[in-house]
Design a binder for these strands. Structure first.
Lengths: 218, 218
DNA sequence: GACCTATATTCTACACCGTAGGTAATACCT
DNA sequence: AGGTATTACCTACGGTGTAGAATATAGGTC
């Protein structure tokens, strides 16, 4: 009966589990992700994971934390002006989301209170204060910026503006009847770069312009 | 053996199922929602639902569609100017999200290609064209606006900016160590109305200002 | 009215899920 | 060397989505 291998160390750790979970979700998506799939990926009993992470919800938190850490690590040095900081943060955030398109919905859904997130917000708001902007405008800015980022990335990374297109060929198909929506149909060609870098930069500048205008006391 | 009641009509329909699903998610949340729960709510066998809606994914689509219809029905009459239309749409969208806070994550996550959604976008973009705005700015506007709306509502409706507060008393608790984040700590009082109407109006105007500035050819 | 067919409903069954509770083997500290 | 805490595993329970088959009603055709 001494067939068991129970106590033998499997080298599990919160870090290793989180890394494997990120990989697994990247490969197979959030839908099919689960404790048991992850355990079999790690060659381990499902229950072993519970010694390091309390449950599935905590597992998802660990995934969020792991990819968020990538974001703050991305920018080696930060600009001094608040707009530069905001731009750098937004781009690093988008780069991460593109690296992990199936994880980014998690970030948008779950409240962000981790240390890395708070550090980033502290950096941005401190720079805005240095620039002499009104406190209320500063307090509002992060929610406007990250609200937009989350919503925009959610929209562009999972689906497209009506219809399926082939990511390989990049050929978009309208997939809606153009007759009742003449303006949308006319505008469709301009949405060719949906989710692309140029589009992102345009929209980011649009949002930053709004924040800047309010910062200027408009 | 003639105890079965199988063929007896239960009065199911796509509409009735969707309405019950909306009610159920409103009451008990998305986490616990499922085909079986919904079926027992309707006093019906789980598989009966499949005669009207193909599966769980289609069920979630039906929920989205149902609440989206509320949005377009909300505005009795629309302004003529594009900013007025955008404001009206944004407010109706927020009202719906507040009525169904546990459903709104669904809208942000799933691509919106339903007729009601397209109609709304057609109305907005047509008004912008009438105002003589450059096509690229028009084409970008909906994604900026609804990106922000989805991200903002996601953030405000499920959780708050770091820490739990009691919705009854409305007393917010920072719940993060203020020492490493002096600016955030100083700004915390200004986030008292987190998720409130005043805050929403300020941020909506911020985003609209950005769109307007680009519309003006900046 | 009598028959036939399409459709709505239910039943059964399967593979999977998250996780509570209990047990064994190792690692670490004294 | 001995004792304890940690790590890992096993078993089991109640839940899930849904494929497949059985059955009773509704509606059209003669």
């Amino acid at each position: 009966m001494a067939k068991r291998t129970q106590g033998k160390p499997a080298g599990l750790s919160r870090r290793r589990i989180a890394a494997a979970a990120v990989d697994l979700v990247d490969r197979e998506g959030l839908e099919s992700f689960g404790v048991r799939r992850l355990a079999s990926e790690l060659g381990v009993d499902p229950m072993s994971i519970y010694n390091h992470i309390k449950g599935k919800a905590a597992l998802l938190d660990a995934i969020s934390e792991a990819v968020l850490t990538e974001v703050s690590a991305a920018a080696a040095q930060w600009p001094d002006d608040w707009m530069g900081i905001a731009r750098t943060m937004a781009r690093a955030y988008r780069d991460m989301a593109i690296r992990h398109p199936r994880i980014s919905p998690l970030l948008a859904t779950r409240a962000q209170t981790s240390a890395v997130a708070l550090e980033a917000l502290e950096r941005l708001t401190a720079a805005m204060r240095r620039a002499g902007i009104a406190d209320q405008a500063i307090a509002d800015a992060p929610l406007v910026l990250f609200g937009f980022l989350n919503g925009y990335l959610l929209a562009t990374l999972s689906g497209n503006p009506g219809g399926t297109d082939d990511p390989a060929t990049g050929v978009a198909q309208p997939a809606f009847d153009p007759a009742p929506y003449p303006t949308l149909a006319a505008l469709a060609p301009l949405q060719a770069g949906f989710g692309g870098e140029d589009e992102f930069e345009r929209m980011l500048e649009t949002v930053l312009a709004g924040i800047a205008q309010r910062a200027a006391g408009a």
